[in-house]
């Protein structure tokens, strides 16, 4: 049940990434290139996703529990620390260099393009190294 649910959720997500055009780094980079070959499409992707999630969460989170698990697993931290801002800035830098974010790269693997495989391998290496660095400094791993 869990596996089927996860596969279905992944499929709808992957379909959304593919249909929206976020799967295409050329399109994503053009969103960020207002001074050049600007393509505002990404704002519509974010807008559609945000509005749907905002409304959907209002109904779902009113329920006592999710269907499969015993309770909702929601992040509870509200503090803004240097790690959050610094990490996000580093992510923005990498996104601007390569044109892929993790959520677009995973579905893009389905295209079979070697560039996507290289990106995902480098992405996993980055996650590994950061996790090891975090565990050495005794930090709790991020959710």
């Amino acid at each position: 049940m869990r596996l089927l649910s996860a596969f279905l959720v992944g499929l709808i997500f992957g379909l959304g990434i593919a249909v929206s055009g976020m799967i295409n780094p050329a399109k994503v980079l053009n969103f960020f290139d207002i001074a050049g070959t600007w393509d505002p499409s990404l704002a519509f992707v974010m807008g559609g996703a945000l509005i749907t999630t905002f409304i959907g969460y209002r109904f779902v989170l009113r329920r006592p529990a999710p269907v499969i698990e015993a309770k909702f697993l929601l992040p509870t931290r509200r503090d803004i620390d240097a790690r959050l801002v610094g990490g996000s800035a580093v992510f923005g830098l990498g996104w601007g260099i390569a044109g892929f974010c993790p959520g677009a790269a995973l579905p893009a693997l389905g295209s079979g393009k070697w560039e996507v495989m290289v990106f995902v391998a480098a992405l996993i290496a980055g996650i590994w190294v950061a996790r090891i660095a975090q565990s050495r400094t005794g930090e709790r791993a991020a959710a």
Binding site: L84, I124, A130
Partner: peptide, 14 residues
């Protein structure tokens, strides 16, 4: 380079 940097950034940025 971009892929590696994204991996480090999203891990620290949660």
């Amino acid at each position: 380079v971009g892929g590696f940097i994204v991996g480090v950034g999203v891990t620290y940025g949660s």
